[in-house]
């Protein structure tokens, strides 16, 4: 027996080493990817392509944030547009009405969104499966209706961000896309790092346990409700930060352009197509999906014939059917389980 337990210990240590080596490799991959993306806009000067880069990086960050709650904790929200809208409206209203810097507005929007997520989570996390998902859709739609008829926030007409001096303090740069690319890159990197950190933290293990088998998790002492609340707050915070960024980038918001159900789907989609609950899934999904959306829209969509929609929809359908685990499946082998002997030994 003792030789066997030594075998188990060695096996576990080995698996542990492998795991940490893999995590270090991922960090190094990030450094390389960030360096490449930083250089890219210096070579590609085309405004149209730079615009696509901003959107791709932004959706990477947003989908990565959605992934915290949807992918790691397994709570499928299709109402994250509410947090996006809160972020966009908070920073924009603070700036237009009180002249507050959008950077502060970003943090404030994130804070408010996290609070809203906690308030909503309290009743919502009692709901299971589709009941939860539909509740998230419903509450985001209610927010859309309310913002449409809220005159202070511009109602259906929306708010135009007044032009201020082009500088980092105002997060306005006129026609220069470069600073937006780097801000979006920073956002995507931060959300990636947060997710990376979570993967090996207590919360990360709890969330995955809640996702895979809530009953078993509970019996091991994981407080399911608190786990979901923490994931929801973190997820909402970063989506709202992305919302503030988007408002600065497009300089004009109205309820339909930030609170539409379409956005809720667009946060989930890259993660699902790339690989839900994985570190690189959202980025991979966004890198394929967003440029494709933009290209089909500009090359096939101008005629208004709907060909762009057909290509876009067919692609989503094909990836979902063909690679259910996400496109990440092409790049990463499934991690090997612990040595079989260790697993069996634990039972004997």
């Amino acid at each position: 027996m003792s030789t066997q337990s030594i075998g188990i210990a060695a096996g576990l240590a080995q698996a542990n080493d492998r795991f940490h080596a893999a995590r270090r490799r991922q960090l190094m991959t990030l450094v390389v990817v960030v360096l490449v993306i930083s250089v890219l806009p210096l070579l590609v000067k085309d405004v149209y392509l730079q615009n696509i880069m901003v959107l791709t990086l932004m959706y990477t960050a947003l989908s990565q944030s959605w992934n915290i709650l949807g992918g790691y904790c397994g709570q499928i929200s299709l109402g994250h547009a509410i947090y996006f809208g809160i972020g966009a409206y908070t920073s924009t209203l603070l700036f237009t009405k009180f002249g507050v810097s959008p950077w502060f507005g970003m943090a404030a929007g994130g804070g408010i969104a996290a609070l809203v997520a906690l308030v909503l989570g309290y009743p919502f996390f009692r709901l299971k499966g589709h009941y939860f998902t539909i509740a998230t859709i419903v509450v985001a739609e209610a927010a859309l209706v309310l913002f449409l008829s809220w005159p202070y926030a511009g109602g259906a007409l929306g708010i135009q961000l007044p032009a201020a001096a082009d500088n980092w303090a105002n997060l306005q740069f006129g026609r220069n896309k470069l600073p937006f690319i780097y801000t979006a890159l920073a956002l995507a990197t931060i959300t990636w790092l947060v997710t990376w950190k979570i993967e090996d933290s207590r919360w990360g293990y709890w969330w995955r346990a809640v996702k895979d088998n809530p009953e078993a998790a509970e019996s091991l002492g994981v407080v399911i409700f608190n786990s979901k609340m923490a994931a929801a707050a973190l997820s909402a915070f970063f989506v709202a930060v992305g919302g503030s960024f988007y408002a600065q980038f497009v300089a004009y918001i109205d309820p339909d352009s930030v609170l539409n159900f379409h956005f809720s789907l667009l946060f989930a989609l890259p993660a699902v197509l790339g690989g839900i609950g994985t570190l690189w899934g959202p980025a991979l999904g966004a890198i394929i999906l967003i440029p494709l959306t933009e290209f089909t829209r500009s090359y096939a969509g101008g005629s208004g014939q709907g060909i762009d929609l057909i290509i876009y929809g067919a692609l989503i359908m094909l990836i979902a059917l063909w690679k259910p685990e996400g496109l990440i499946g092409f790049f990463v082998r499934q991690p090997k389980p612990l040595p079989a002997s260790a697993d069996e030994g634990a039972h004997s």
Binding site: L309, G313, M317, L321
Partner: peptide
Amino acid sequence: AKVNAGMVQVFATFGLAIVLRGLAQLFFTP
């Protein structure tokens, strides 16, 4: 689908929805 079947169904039918909308635009205009 053996993994995350729920999301696969959601997005397979969602993709179909977009294709149908595109077809309607193509044949009947918006």
